[in-house]
């Protein structure tokens, strides 16, 4: 009886997580418009508690001459990450980009981001159990690149 109940719980948890990760923009639009990192992360995951345990990896320059295109590479040593999110605390909207990673996809992405000024770039990786892992790096920006 107990086993059956446990399996049932497991199934409903799987079903729920599939729905939740179907489209994080549609599910959590407010996180993308958030004005602070805490608000953005809470908006996405319901908690802003992250582990700084070295499992999230972020490659970014120490100094960026052009804030309009700062190269960053995000990756993780976690086995089955579900989502990866880049934030920049000096931008009007700190949430820069989010990825939903599928099994078989190597959890490593490179892109170029905009930074208005010298700020902290943070990568948050959600593992298969929903725990959040983070890493932060300060990038000095000589010429800001957020202007319209």
């Amino acid at each position: 009886m107990k086993r059956r109940k446990f399996l049932g719980l497991g199934l409903s948890a799987v079903a729920f997580s599939t729905v939740a990760s179907a489209n994080i923009l549609k599910e959590h639009p407010q996180a993308f418009d958030a004005k602070s990192i805490e608000e953005a992360i809470k908006g996405l995951y319901g908690t802003s508690e992250t582990l700084n345990d070295g499992k999230a990896k972020l490659k970014a320059p120490d100094i960026a001459e052009n804030g309009a295109a700062v190269p960053v590479t995000v990756s993780t040593t976690l086995e089955n990450p579900k989502t990866m999110v880049i934030t920049v605390d000096g931008n009007p909207h700190p949430l820069v980009a989010a990825w939903e990673v599928q099994p078989g996809t190597i959890p490593k992405f490179s892109t170029r981001i905009k930074m208005r000024k010298t700020a902290n770039v943070t990568l948050i990786v959600e593992d298969e159990n929903g725990k959040l892992h983070s890493v932060t790096k300060q990038v000095k920006v000589t010429v800001g690149g957020c202007g319209g």
Binding site: A68, A69, H93, T105, R112
Partner: peptide, 25 residues
């Protein structure tokens, strides 16, 4: 037919977005 990933960029991704990724199989 297999999904590799979804990315949700914002306007803080640089003009003419560059994205590098890799997958198995």
């Amino acid at each position: 037919d297999k999904l590799v990933f979804d990315m949700y960029p914002t306007s803080a991704i640089a003009k003419n977005p560059y994205i590098k990724f890799a997958f198995k199989g």
